[in-house]
Design a protein around this nucleic acid. Structure first.
Length: 127
RNA sequence: GGAGCAGGCGGGAUGAUCGCGGGCCCCUUACCGGGCCGGAGGAAAGUCCGAGCUCCACAGGGCAGGAUGGUCGCUAACGGCGACCGGGGGUGAAGGUAAGAGCUCACCAGUUCCCCGGGUGACCGGGGAAGCUCGGCAAACCCCAUCCGGAGCAAGACCACAUAGGGGAGCGUUCGAGGGCUGCCCGCCCGAGCUCCCGGGUAGGUUGCUAGAGACGGCGGGCAACCGCCGUCCCAGAGUAAUGAUCAUCGCCCCCCGGAGGGUGACCGAGGGGGGGAACAAAACUCGGCUUACAGCCUGCUCCGACA
RNA sequence: GGUCCCAUCGUCUAGCGGUUAGGACGCUGGCCUCUCACGCCGGAAACCAGGGUUCGAUUCCCUGUGGGACCA
């Protein structure tokens, strides 16, 4: 798992997640779906694309098909956000990453999800 | 101890670290940064009713349509709630008790009408007459009574940006096109270029946006729903959508190990150790209800069992 | 967030309180043919779930579930 939160200072800045680091516009989502590079796994689809802002940005899609209740969808989004917050410094700079949920994983613990994403993004992350 | 009913509480508490959305303050051209304050529910849900609020110029009449259906009250209002009563009329095939059947008579039940008494009222109690059969269903239809203008915060207001008005159709300028007032008719209003259809563009920001039929406490009135007075408090406001993650300690529940001890016995079991779990579900303009989902805990009442 | 629809054989559908729940395509058994197709005869197969009203519900009323459409 990633360096335990709070134990050691992050290599670049701190483990924060501000609004400017989020993909929020419909048009931006459409652009990513159109031209991003996709990686698939059992639970997730990850779409990657370089951007010009110089910032690593995160977008999340958790549809109603995946989780029937709002509580489950929120749970999944929080897990994904937590992973990004703690591991974004290991991703290449100036890149948008869009994570789409494919199956319900709201039962997972944070560590389980992190392991899943490590597998998906193997080779694209620094140690 | 178990079951049922009614009511209440309800992601346990404290601390540490990292993080998120909002408000105020400081710093700063601004970004960034720092400090303080507070940040999901009883159902926030389903969207089944009722309102507030906003727009439709005013929000008229009749018909149609929809909703409700015992009475009295509560309420801003309701299809809700409380108490009381024992539930409007009509439209399709059958009163009962004594014999196998029919008829007659009697009795009972029901129906209609009249009289007396009680109640604000639904209705109840008592007496009498007629008559020979009338049943139920307010969730099918008709009648009767009452209520209802239409949309909905993606309402609506403002500021940007963009296309520059492309194609087709209709009709008309004091004899009025077209539109609005849910549908139709009447009536009213706006009214000179308007409207409709197809196609195209933008789908950004600010506001509405949270102090309210508000919460809590006390006193008083009422069988109750609820109301009145006084005092205190300010309690989410997002917009790909904020409450999370990790760790520690202490509680709660379940399972396993273990077995002090109790009992004739089946068995029940304290301290201790290990592992697991804690429902249903999350604001999106705001309230009052209804309905549905839900582990555990607490309180009251009723019933069953205290034994195999 | 709001407004509003739909659910019937495997699929598309008819059905407005009493039906043997009808039809088309598909499936299937047989006939026809040397065989296949076409055609003909026959068969299986459904009312989303749970309550309620009714003498009787696919139909009426509630609740739930699953789909779908629209809005600035």
């Amino acid at each position: 798992m990633s360096p335990a939160a709070g134990k050691s200072p992050a290599p670049e800045g701190r483990y924060t997640l501000g609004k400017h680091e989020r993909i929020r516009r419909r048009s931006e989502f459409s652009a990513l779906f159109k031209s991003g590079k996709r990686i698939y796994s059992e639970y997730l689809t990850v779409i990657l694309c370089k951007n010009t802002s110089g910032v690593r940005r995160l977008g999340l899609v958790v549809g109603k098909r995946v989780g029937k209740t709002a509580v489950r969808r929120n749970r999944m989004k929080r897990l994904l956000r937590e992973f990004f917050r703690l591991n974004k410094h290991r991703l290449p700079a100036s890149q948008d990453i869009l994570i789409v949920a494919r199956k319900d994983f709201s039962f997972m613990k944070c560590q389980d999800l992190c392991r899943e994403l490590e597998k998906v993004l193997a080779g694209r992350m620094k140690a």
